[in-house]
């Protein structure tokens, strides 16, 4: 459900959660980012930070400068100022990331989990089976056949929640239960209806199907793409996965290691949701690649 009016709920003395709906929907998330942009550009003084998520926005505010009631009133006005989505465009960079499907590292991580925690079906086979795909080749084809939308960032610095923009490429998968104690940096995983890239070696629960040698988080800021921030993505960016051979993967990994790798990003892109809706009307969503 997408709410006609946003719902505001307090998070203690310093935070307000703004709910715009309660379903996984690209349109809803696009509205979240459109409202977030307006809050950033013309929100009232006293709002300190916002965290846009799938269907909601977490707002931190300084109550010495603005009251709870005034945050609610001003942000509600911005919500209404967004109006109909169809005329909206947002800046949206596209990152091209080489990834190696069904790589030896995620397999090693899976084997370690099976040996030490609990045996389970192999991740790529499980994702292919649950999504009615013929084989792993089709899994790689479907997974790499779409742009992904950076719907949210968080939990760990730089961790992304990616939504496939082409409905023919939607994949869903249950999460590991219990979760893994470790995951290789750069692992590509699927959990629920979302895809994610592990920014660092961390615990995890998404089904692992590939790995990228390209860092999306760099606390040492070695590579040029991290000049401004330690984390690569911003909400509203897009990601395209480029299937890579073992040789191609190693080539990029060596460039990253040498500090010479340049992230492949199209900075000039914008995303028009009107165009997107018109395109959706021309495709048969039930036919996979």
């Amino acid at each position: 459900m997408i709410f006609a009016e946003p719902v505001f709920r307090p998070g203690g003395d310093r935070f307000i959660e703004m709910e715009l709906g309660d379903e996984m929907s690209f349109d809803l998330n696009f509205r979240v980012h459109s409202v977030s942009r307006l809050i950033r550009e013309c929100g009232p003084a006293g709002i300190i930070e916002i965290v846009p998520e799938l269907t909601s926005i977490m707002i931190s505010y300084d109550f010495e400068r603005i009251s709870y009631a005034d945050v609610v009133a001003e942000v509600t006005a911005l919500f209404h100022a967004v109006g109909s989505l169809d005329g909206l465009e947002l800046d949206s960079r596209i990152f091209y990331l080489p990834i190696r499907y069904f790589d030896p590292w995620t397999r090693e991580c899976y084997d370690d989990y099976c040996a030490k925690i609990a045996p389970k079906e192999r991740d790529p086979e499980l994702v292919a089976r649950l999504n009615g795909l013929a084989d792993l080749a089709q899994l790689a084809r479907v997974h790499s056949g779409t742009d992904y939308w950076v719907a949210a960032l968080g939990f760990y610095p730089g961790l992304v929640s990616l939504m496939p923009l082409d409905p023919r490429c939607r994949l869903t998968a249950p999460k590991y239960d219990p979760p893994r104690t470790w995951t290789y940096k750069g692992t590509i995983g699927i959990g629920g209806a979302l895809c994610s890239i592990y920014p660092d070696r961390t615990p995890g629960g998404y089904q692992m199907i590939a790995r990228t040698p390209v860092p999306i988080w760099d606390p040492a800021q070695r590579l040029a793409a991290f000049a401004e921030s330690l984390a690569l993505f911003r909400p509203g960016d897009r990601v395209r996965f480029i299937p890579a051979s073992a040789e191609e993967y190693d080539h990029v990994a060596a460039q990253v290691e040498a500090g010479t790798y340049l992230h492949n990003v199209a900075e000039y892109q914008r995303f028009s949701i009107g165009n997107y809706h018109r395109w959706l009307g021309t495709i048969d969503e039930t036919v996979r690649f």
Binding site: G11, G12, F15, E17, E23, M24, V51, E53, M58, S161
Partner: peptide, 9 residues
């Protein structure tokens, strides 16, 4: 559904 966590949650 994933959402933001207030500090102190």
């Amino acid at each position: 559904l994933d959402h933001g966590y207030p500090v102190g949650a």
